[in-house]
Amino acid sequence: MKTSQRGIDLIKEFESLHDGDLKKTGLQPKMDPVGIWTEGYGRAMHDDKGNFLKGAGNKASAEKRATIFTEKEAEEALRQDLEVYENIVAKKVRVPITQNQFDALVSHTYNTGGSDGLFKLINDRAAGAAIRNWFVTKYITAQGVKLNGLIRRRKDEADLFFAK
């Protein structure tokens, strides 16, 4: 399966187009709520060793490493990145799912890296209430603080998962 436009729109809504410095021409890297530098639609940036590029002290490094400067480049990068997360969902889910369910899981995995707990509930064909509860109560914090954006995202992912 491939992520539908509905799934892409959900990801774009919550990731938003990152521009960390509106005074500069083009898109600029931006730190996410846990201090990871991102560009485009939430693409995490890495140092030379493959570690997340983190912290305000790495702003110059993030700007130097940036590869996404236009909305078109951000869109292309998102579509490339989605292949990774689509493959994770395809490998982890072993039961038939709908397009909406796939899209919700790709959005969740794009944001969190995926959760074996959620995949297990789905593969075990858990009750809808248990799956919905999992969506809306997990991965809603950053550094121990509940974030309204994550709460809204998890609710919207759950709503998409159960949409007909």
Rank of each mutant, 00 (worst) to 15 (best):
E86F: 00
T3Q: 10
L82G: 01
I122W: 03
P29C: 09
I131C: 04
R152T: 14
E15W: 08
N111C: 13
I11Y: 02
E83V: 14
L78F: 00
A90R: 15
K120L: 15
N87A: 14
A127S: 12
T141Y: 02
E13R: 15
L105N: 04
E157Q: 05
Y41V: 06
E86L: 01
N148S: 14
N58P: 04
G144L: 11
A44Q: 12
A90Y: 11
D47F: 02
V84H: 10
I151L: 15
V95N: 09
P33F: 04
S4H: 02
N87I: 07
A62G: 00
G55F: 10
M31P: 03
K164D: 14
S107L: 09
I140M: 04
D48G: 12
A104T: 07
I11R: 01
I122M: 06
E157L: 01
D19P: 04
A126M: 10
T109S: 11
T70P: 04
A126N: 09
G57S: 09
K72L: 13
A90F: 11
L105I: 11
L118F: 06
D47Y: 01
L53I: 08
R6P: 01
K64Y: 11
K24H: 07
K54W: 03
T70L: 05
D9Y: 09
V136N: 02
R125M: 14
A126F: 11
Q143D: 14
R125V: 11
G42D: 05
A60H: 07
K92P: 00
D124V: 07
T137Q: 06
L118C: 09
L121N: 07
A66E: 09
Q143A: 14
Q101L: 10
V145H: 12
G20F: 03
A60T: 10
D21E: 10
P29R: 01
W37N: 02
T141H: 02
K155L: 15
R79E: 15
I36M: 10
E71K: 15
D9N: 15
L17D: 05
K59T: 01
E157M: 01
I68M: 00
Q99K: 10
G57V: 08
T67Y: 02
V136W: 02
D47G: 05
W134L: 10
K92I: 05
F119P: 03
R43P: 00
F69E: 07
E15M: 09
P96C: 06
R153G: 03
G42H: 06
T38N: 09
R94H: 15
R154Y: 07
E73K: 06
G55I: 13
S16I: 12
G113A: 13
R152V: 12
K49R: 14
A44F: 12
E15A: 05
K24E: 13
K146L: 08
N100D: 15
T137L: 04
L53P: 00
K23F: 08
Q80C: 07
N87V: 04
G35L: 06
K59G: 00
W37P: 02
L82H: 02
Y85W: 06
N111I: 10
G128Q: 13
M31S: 08
H18T: 13
L121Q: 07
G26V: 00
